Lab assay of single mutants.
Amino acid sequence: QKPVSAYALFFRDTQAAIKGQNPNATFGEVSKIVASMWDSLGEEQKQVYKRKTEAAKKEYLKALAAYR
């Protein structure tokens, strides 16, 4: 399975908490809140997710090379 983006990892980590705080929110509303949070996130915090994405990408490429 291809690795997901840094934003997708952040979304996955954040979505449940947002939904818990806003139980009646639609998926679209939750998405807007998470997107706003991502935009206001500091670069250092974004780097945490970007590093996770890079590590997953390297593992994916290694597994793909081994498969071929």
Rank of each mutant, 00 (worst) to 15 (best):
K2D: 05
K2E: 03
P3R: 08
P3N: 08
P3Q: 05
P3W: 06
S5P: 03
S5K: 08
Y7W: 03
Y7C: 02
A8P: 03
A8V: 09
L9V: 06
F10L: 01
F10W: 00
F11L: 07
F11M: 09
R12P: 00
D13E: 14
D13W: 02
D13H: 06
D13R: 00
D13S: 03
D13Q: 03
Q15C: 07
Q15V: 08
Q15A: 03
Q15E: 10
A16C: 04
A17H: 11
I18D: 00
K19N: 02
G20T: 13
G20S: 14
G20D: 15
Q21A: 11
Q21C: 06
N22C: 04
P23A: 05
P23K: 04
N24G: 14
A25L: 08
A25N: 02
A25Q: 05
T26M: 00
T26S: 13
F27S: 15
G28P: 13
G28A: 10
E29G: 00
V30E: 03
V30C: 05
V30A: 00
S31C: 08
K32M: 07
K32A: 11
K32T: 11
I33K: 12
I33T: 12
I33Q: 09
V34E: 00
S36P: 02
S36A: 12
M37D: 03
W38K: 01
W38Q: 03
W38H: 01
S40V: 08
L41G: 03
L41N: 00
E43S: 09
E44I: 02
K46R: 10
K46T: 04
Q47C: 07
V48I: 09
R51H: 11
R51D: 14
R51M: 10
T53L: 10
T53H: 14
T53D: 11
T53Y: 15
E54F: 07
A55E: 13
A55V: 13
A55Y: 06
A55T: 11
A56Y: 09
A56K: 15
K57Q: 11
K57W: 04
K57Y: 05
K57I: 03
K58R: 11
K58F: 09
E59G: 06
E59H: 01
Y60N: 06
Y60I: 02
L61G: 13
K62S: 10
K62W: 01
K62P: 08
K62M: 07
A63T: 12
A63D: 13
A63C: 09
L64C: 15
A65W: 10
A65Y: 03
A65S: 13
R68K: 14
